[in-house]
Simulated assay, not measured.
Amino acid sequence: MDNETFNMDILQLEGLKVSPESSFPAFLLLLLIYVFIIVSNIGLVVLIFMERSLQEPMYLLFCNMSINDVFGATTIIPRILSDIFTPIPDRYIHYYECVVQAFCAHFHAGISHAVLIIMAFDRYVAICNPLRYATIMTNRVVVALSVSAWGVPFFLVAIVIILSVRLSRCRRSVTNPFCDNASLFKLSCENILINNIYGLGTAMLTMACSLCSVTLTYLRIAMVCLSSKNKALNSKALQTCGTHLAMYILLLLSGNIIIIFHRFPDLSDERKLASILLHVVPPSMNAVIYGLQIKAIREQIYIIFTRKKLLWWCEMKLQN
C-alpha cells in the first residue's frame, strides 16, 4: 500500500520533445532567453527605484509587470532546462511540486492581465484627467492597485487549484511541458464538471474584464486625442499607449495561440511548444518594448552607460 501511494505521488512529466541532436541548441537558446529575462526585467526595476525622476505611478506600476515576468519565467524555464537532457521515460515530478508549478503558472497569467488593466487605468487618468492625475494616482492608490493586481488572481487561482487537488488520482502521466490545472484534474477518473465550469468561467471572466477595460479605456483616450489640438499631448499619448497596447497584444497572442492549437489534435507537439510561449515571449519582450519606447527610461539608460564609459576613459587616462 505504501509503495502504491508513493508511486501515485510521483508523476511522469512528458516535457518538451527534443531530439538528441537538438538538445544542446535548445538548451542554450532557452538558457540565454531566461538569462535575458532575468537581467532585463530586474535591471529595469532597479533603474526605476534608483532614479528619482522615474518614480512615477506609470513606472512603479510597470515594476509589477517586470517582477511578475521574472516570477513566471522562473516557474517554468528552469524545470524545462533540467529535463531537456533527460530521456522522456525518466522525467519525473512529485505531485505536490506539480501542484505548486500549476498554481504559479496560472497565477503569473492572471497577474499579467491584472497589471495591464491597472496600467490602462493609469494612462486613462493621465490623458483624460491630467490636472487631477497627481491627486488621483497617489502613492496610496498605486499601492492599492498593485496589491489588488496580485491579490485577486491569487484568490481566483487558489480556488481553481483546490478544486483539482480535492480529486482522487488514477493516472500518473502529465502530457505537457509543465504542470497546469488541466494536467492536475486529468489525473483523476472522477467527474470534473465543476472544475471545467469554474476553470472556464474564471478564464472567460478574466479575459472579458481585460478586453473590455482596455478597449473602453483606449476608446476614451482616442476620443480625447481626436478632440484635442495639443500635439504634445497627442504625441505623448501615442507613445505611452502604443507601448502598453504592444504589451497587451503580445500577451493575448501568446495566450490565444494555445487555444487555437487545441482545435487541431494533429498539432499536439506544436501545442506543447506553444504552451510555454506565455511564460517566455512576453517576459523577454516587455522590458525591451517598455525600456526602448519610453523616452525617460531610454534617457536614463543612455546616461548610465555614458557615465560608465566616461569613468572608464578617465581611469585609462590616469593609468597612462
Rank of each mutant, 00 (worst) to 15 (best):
S173F: 15
S173R: 13
T175E: 15
T175P: 13
T175A: 14
N176A: 13
P177C: 03
C179K: 05
N181A: 13
A182H: 12
L184V: 02
F185L: 10
F185C: 08
K186W: 14
S188D: 06
C189P: 02
C189L: 01
E190R: 06
N191P: 11
N191H: 08
I192K: 15
I192S: 14
L193V: 15
N196D: 09
Y198H: 08
G201N: 08
L205R: 12
L205M: 15
T206H: 11
M207L: 10
S210G: 11
L211S: 09
L211M: 09
L211D: 07
S213T: 06
S213A: 05
L216D: 00
L216E: 02
T217V: 03
I221D: 00
I221T: 00
S228M: 04
N230W: 05
A232Y: 05
A232T: 10
A232L: 09
A232K: 11
L233W: 06
N234L: 05
S235M: 04
A237I: 10
Q239Y: 00
Q239H: 00
Q239R: 13
C241S: 13
C241P: 05
L245P: 08
A246L: 13
M247D: 06
S254R: 02
I257V: 12
I258F: 14
I259H: 11
I260H: 03
F261Y: 04
F261K: 02
H262P: 00
H262I: 09
R263M: 07
R263Y: 12
P265E: 12
P265Y: 09
D266N: 13
K272S: 06
S275I: 04
I276A: 00
L278V: 09
V280W: 02
V280D: 06
P282C: 02
S284F: 03
M285L: 13
M285F: 09
N286A: 11
N286T: 06
N286W: 07
A287T: 04
V288N: 01
V288G: 01
I289E: 04
Y290L: 02
G291A: 03
G291Y: 02
A296S: 07
R298F: 06
R298V: 04
Q300M: 02
I301G: 03
Y302P: 00
I303F: 13
F305K: 10
F305C: 09
R307D: 14
K308A: 10
